[in-house]
Design a binder for these strands. Structure first.
Length: 824
RNA sequence: GCGGACGUGGCGGAAUUGGCAGACGCACCAGCCUUAGGAGCUGGCGCCGCAAGGCGUGGGGGUUCGAGUCCCCCCGUCCGCACCA
C-alpha cells in the first residue's frame, strides 16, 4: 500500500473544505425538514479541553447524521464572552478584557475546528458584540416596560471575592460563592430583578411538554418548590388573652392547616419587619441581642451546624390567639424561620413538625398531638397520615380531608384562605462589574428612573478604562459613560453602572442564531417559526437549574410580549446531558488544574481517533475517568479500516468475482445488520455500542478476507462503503477521505444508507434448547418451523435424549423461532 | 432527613420487549511474522475443576417454564435538595 493514514494532513484539508464549500451552511428558507442542534453556549476560557471535546463530538455526530438523513440542520456556534474571569485577569495583568476575551475566542474556535465540529459560521456571534448587546438591552427594556424587570432594595448575596452580588442560584448550600469559593455575605442593596416568579406555575407545568431527562425535570421541580396550604392571620392578644382589634393580625403560612388545634406557639423570623412593633419592653434587649447575633452570625457558623441545629430563639413577650382554640399562645423569634419564604412567620405545631418539636422542648412549650400516630410509633413529631384527634370538628378525619375542612373553616371565619407558595425567587440580574452588558437605564434627579430610548441602543462599554483592584467597577468613575442627558427632561442625569448577569446573555442566544443578521428586531418570527424549538440541546448537567430555568423564562416572557411566536412556550424540545470527565477522581477543570489538553492527541493520533475514543469509552450521559480512555485502541482500529478500505491496499490482490458463496451471503447479511444497528444506536444515543459494532464488523471482514476462499470483490466493496457511510458522523475526516478515494464524491453529501430487511433474514437460526430453563444444546434449524417441528427436532437431539433419559417432559414451552424450554 | 440514579469478569462496559450473561475495547497470555518493533496478523481470556460438570450479574426472599431485567426487604456507591413551615 502506497498510502498511509496521516490524520493531520487529511483532517486540516477536510476542515478547510467544509468551510470553503459551505457544507454546513443552511438558509432560513431551506426546504428540507428543519432540525436545530445546539451545544450549550461555551464560555471562552482558552483552547478546548476534554470536556469541550466530549460535548462537541456528541453534537457534531448528530449534525452530520441528521444531515445525511436529509434534514436541513441548523448548527450554530457562538461565545458566552462576558463574565468575571476576563475582568479579574484584567485587574491582574492590565490586559483589557476585550483583548483577552477575543484571543480566547480565537483559541477556542481553532480547537473546535480541529476536532472537526461543523458549523454554519456565518451565524456566529459573541455576547459582547455590540450588535448582540443592543438586543440584550432591547429585551431588558421590553421586560422593564411590561413590569417584568424592576429595581428593588433587597437583602442580597454579596461575594467579597468577586466584589459583586450573586443570584441565589449562584450561592452554594454551604454559603460560599460557586465561582470564587468565598463566603457570601448578606447586604441590603438596590438591585435589578427579573420577575421570574410570575412564571413559577408555568415553568412547573410545562416541564411535562419537553423531552428532558427526568433527573433534570425533577431538579427544576424541586427548585421551583411549589407547596400548597393556607395563609391566615393570627390576632395579637391583649393582657387578658383576648384578641386586639387595634393591631393587624400576624400572617402565617402553613401546609398543615389540619393541625391548627395543635398550635401551641408562633414564631417569626428575626428579620420580620414587625418585630419592633410586637416585642414587649421587657423583652426588647434580649430580642435585639438575638437579632444582632443572627445578623452577625458568620456563614462559617451555619456551615458547622448544618442540618439539625439547636432551635435557637427568644420570646417576644407578646402572645397571639390560636384561632382554632381561641387560646393565647406565646410568640417567639427564631432563626429557623426564614423571612424569604411564605410570610416570614409560622404557627408552630410541635406534635406534627420536628423543628417545632425541638423548639418546644428547648423552650418549654406545650405539645399537643392532633394526628393519632400508629400504635408502634416511637418517634417525636409525627408527620405521617392518621386520624385527627384533639381537634374538635376535625376529629376522625384523615389529613387530606382535615386540610380542606380547616381551610374552609378559615375562609368562613374570614381570617385566611387557601394559598400556594413557591420556593423560586425573582432573578437578581444586576452585577457591580464592568465586563457585562450594561443595563440601559438612566437616573434623573427630576424624572427618576428612565429607560434609555431605543434609538440610543446599544449602550456600549467604554474601552478607555483602567482596571484597579478597588473592588469597584471602572464604570462608576468613568465620566463619559456616567454623564448623560435625561431622555425625558434633558437635564443632567447619570447612567446605571451595573451590568447584567451573564446568564441573561445565554437566555436568548439560541433565538438570535436563527436570524443573526437582523438589525430591525432581535430575530424574526418567521425564522423562529422555522427553527424553534431547538430539536436537540446538548450540555452538561451542571446547567440543569440555572441556565435552563432562565432560558425557559425568557422564552415564555418574549412569547407573551409578542416578540416571539405565541406558540413558542419552551425553547428546548429535547435535552441531552452528557457526563463530565474526571481525572484523578475529581472533575476535570481549569480551576482544579487537572486538564488534559487535546493538542498532543490531535497531533499524533488525530481528531477522528479522539472523537471515537470519546464515543466508545462509556455511554455518553455518564461521567467518565480520563484513565479509561483508549485512544491508541481507536487509532489502531482506524488503521485497520484504512488498510481494507484504501483502493490501493495490499489485501486486494486476489479477490473473487462472479457467483457468491455462503460466506459472501453472510457478509451481505452482516452489512445490512450493521446499517440497521448503527441507525438504531445513533437514534438512541448509544454511541458506545455503535463503535463496538464498527469494530465487530471490521473484525468480521478481516477474518473473511483472510479465510481460505477469500473475499468477493463486489460484496467487500459494498461492505466497506457501508461501513464508511455509517462511520462518517463519528469520524468525519477519515470517512470523507477514504470515500473520496473510492467513489470520488463527498461522503457528507451522501444519503444515509438504508438496511435491506429482506437481506438480514437468514434461512436458518440457532435453536436454543433449554431443559428446566438451563441451556443444554444449540441446533441449527430452518427459521420457519412450526412449534411442533421445533419440539420434534429438539427432542430428537442426541444431547437432549441423553439428558432426558426416557423421562416424559412435563411441559414444553416453544418460543419460535429460536427457543425451546423442556420442563421435566 | 427528603428525592433520584446505580451496583454485571482484573478494568470500561454489552444484553432495546422477561428468553444463549459477559458483545466491543483495555489489560494479560500464547502462537505467527520480523532488518526485534510501543508495528502487523491469529488465537485464548468470568470463577471452581484434569475432565465430565458445577457455580455465577451487591446480599436475602418472591413471581415465572424461564429473572441481570419484574416485586419485597437489606447492604453499598454516586448525584441533587436540605431549617422552605
Amino acid at each position: 500500500m502506497t498510502e498511509t493514514y496521516n490524520p493531520q494532513e487529511i483532517e486540516s484539508r477536510w476542515q478547510q473544505r467544509w468551510i470553503d464549500e459551505g457544507t454546513y451552511e443552511v438558509d432560513n428558507d431551506d426546504p428540507r425538514p428543519s432540525y436545530y442542534v445546539l451545544s450549550m453556549y461555551p464560555y471562552p476560557s482558552g483552547p478546548a479541553h476534554m470536556g469541550h471535546v466530549r460535548n462537541y463530538t456528541m453534537g457534531d455526530l448528530l449534525v452530520r447524521y441528521r444531515t445525511m438523513r436529509g434534514d436541513g440542520v441548523l448548527s450554530p456556534i457562538g461565545f458566552d464572552s462576558f463574565g468575571l474571569p476576563a475582568e479579574n485577569a484584567a485587574i491582574k495583568t492590565g490586559t483589557h478584557p476585550r483583548i483577552h476575551t477575543e484571543e480566547n475566542i480565537e483559541k477556542l474556535s481553532a480547537s473546535l475546528r480541529r476536532i472537526g465540529a461543523a458549523y454554519d459560521l456565518r451565524r456566529s456571534f459573541s455576547s459582547h458584540d455590540s450588535d448582540y448587546m443592543k438586543w440584550t438591552q432591547w429585551i431588558f427594556l421590553q421586560l422593564y416596560n411590561a413590569g417584568l424587570a424592576y429595581r428593588d432594595r433587597a437583602p442580597v448575596n454579596w461575594c467579597p471575592g468577586c466584589q459583586t452580588v450573586l443570584a441565589n442560584e449562584q450561592v452554594l448550600t454551604d454559603g460560599t460563592c460557586e465561582r470564587s469559593g468565598d463566603l457570601v455575605e448578606n447586604r441590603e442593596m438596590e438591585q435589578w430583578f427579573y420577575r421570574i416568579t410570575k412564571y413559577a406555575q408555568q415553568l412547573l407545568d410545562d416541564l411535562d411538554t419537553v423531552e428532558w431527562p427526568e433527573k433534570v425535570k425533577l431538579m427544576q421541580q424541586n427548585w421551583i418548590g411549589r407547596s400548597e396550604g393556607a395563609q391566615f392571620g393570627l390576632s395579637i392578644a391583649d393582657t387578658d388573652g383576648k384578641s386586639r382589634k387595634d393591631v393587624p393580625p400576624l400572617d402565617v403560612y402553613t401546609t398543615r392547616p389540619d393541625t391548627g388545634f395543635g398550635m401551641t406557639f408562633a414564631v417569626m423570623s428575626p428579620e420580620h419587619p414587625r418585630v419592633d412593633e410586637l416585642v414587649t419592653e421587657e423583652n426588647r434587649s434580649s430580642v435585639d441581642a438575638f437579632r444582632e447575633e443572627v445578623a452577625n452570625r458568620s456563614e462559617m457558623d451555619r456551615l458547622s451546624s448544618e442540618g439539625n441545629i439547636d432551635k435557637r430563639g427568644v420570646p417576644t413577650g407578646s402572645f397571639v390567639i390560636n384561632p382554632f382554640t381561641n387560646s393565647s399562645v406565646p410568640l417567639f423569634l427564631a432563626d429557623y424561620v426564614l423571612m424569604t419564604y411564605g410570610t416570614g412567620a409560622i404557627m408552630a405545631v410541635p406534635g406534627e413538625d420536628q423543628r417545632d418539636w425541638d423548639f418546644a422542648i428547648a423552650h418549654g412549650c406545650e405539645i399537643i398531638r392532633t394526628v393519632e400516630p400508629p400504635e408502634d410509633f416511637d418517634g417525636e413529631a409525627y408527620t405521617g397520615d392518621g386520624e385527627s384527634i384533639n381537634s374538635d370538628f376535625l376529629n376522625g378525619m384523615k389529613i387530606k380531608e382535615a386540610k380542606q375542612t380547616a381551610i374552609q373553616w378559615l375562609e368562613g371565619q374570614n381570617i385566611g384562605s387557601h394559598q400556594i407558595n413557591y420556593r423560586l425567587r425573582d432573578w437578581l440580574v444586576s452585577r457591580q462589574r464592568y465586563w457585562g452588558c450594561p443595563i440601559p437605564i438612566i437616573f434623573c434627579d427630576v424624572c427618576g428612573e428612565q429607560p434609555v430610548p431605543e434609538k440610543d441602543l446599544p449602550v456600549d462599554l467604554p474601552d478607555d478604562v483602567k482596571f484597579m483592584p478597588t473592588g469597584r467597577s471602572p464604570l462608576t468613575t468613568h465620566k463619559n459613560f456616567l454623564e448623560v442627558e435625561c431622555p425625558k427632561c434633558g437635564e443632567n442625569a447619570r447612567r446605571e453602572t451595573d451590568t447584567m448577569d451573564t446568564f441573561v446573555d445565554s437566555s436568548w442566544y439560541f433565538l438570535r442564531f436563527t436570524d443573526p443578521w437582523n438589525d430591525e428586531t432581535p430575530f424574526s418570527e418567521k425564522a423562529l417559526d422555522h427553527w424553534l424549538p431547538v430539536d436537540q440541546y446538548i450540555g452538561g448537567v451542571e446547567h440543569a437549574i440555572l441556565h435552563l430555568m432562565y432560558a425557559r423564562f425568557f422564552t415564555k416572557a418574549l412569547s407573551d410580549l409578542g416578540v416571539a411566536p405565541k406558540e413558542l412556550r419552551e425553547p428546548f424540545k429535547r435535552l441531552f446531558t452528557q457526563g463530565m470527565i474526571r481525572l484523578g477522581g475529581s472533575k476535570m477543570s481549569k480551576s482544579k488544574g487537572n486538564l488534559v489538553a487535546p493538542e498532543g492527541i490531535l497531533d499524533e493520533q488525530g481528531a477522528d481517533a479522539l472523537r471515537l475514543a470519546h464515543l466508545q469509552v462509556k455511554p455518553p450521559q455518564e461521567d467518565v475517568d480520563w484513565e479509561d480512555f483508549g485512544i491508541d485502541g481507536c487509532a489502531k482500529f482506524l488503521n485497520r479500516v484504512w488498510r481494507i478500505s484504501h483502493p490501493e491496499n495490499s489485501l486486494s490482490e486476489n479477490f473473487r468475482e462472479g457467483a457468491m458463496n455462503e460466506q459472501d451471503e453472510e457478509i451481505v447479511r452482516q452489512t445490512n445488520r450493521l446499517i440497521e444497528r448503527i441507525t438504531n444506536d445513533y437514534d438512541r444515543w448509544s454511541y458506545n455500542t455503535a463503535v463496538a459494532a464498527f469494530m465487530e464488523f471490521t473484525n468480521t471482514l478481516y477474518r473473511w478476507i483472510q479465510s481460505d476462499d477469500g473475499a468477493h470483490k463486489e460484496v467487500l466493496g459494498t461492505a466497506v462503503d457501508s461501513l464508511l457511510l455509517v462511520m462518517a458522523p463519528a469520524t468525519p475526516h477519515f470517512s470523507a477521505e477514504l470515500w473520496e478515494l473510492r467513489n470520488s464524491t463527498h461522503i457528507h453529501q451522501e444519503s444515509w444508507p438504508e438496511a435491506d430487511k429482506s437481506k438480514i433474514e437468514s434461512g436458518t437460526v440457532t435453536l436454543v434448547v433449554q431443559i428446566n430453563g438451563k441451556l443444554k444444546d444449540r441446533i441449527e434449524v430452518p427459521s420457519n418451523l412450526t412449534d411442533e417441528e421445533i419440539q420434534d427436532l429438539a427432542l430428537a437431539s442426541e444431547r437432549v435424549k441423553e439428558l432426558l433419559d426416557e423421562q416424559e417432559p412435563k411441559r414444553v414451552i416453544v418460543r419460535p423461532p429460536a427457543l425451546i424450554n423442556i420442563v421435566v
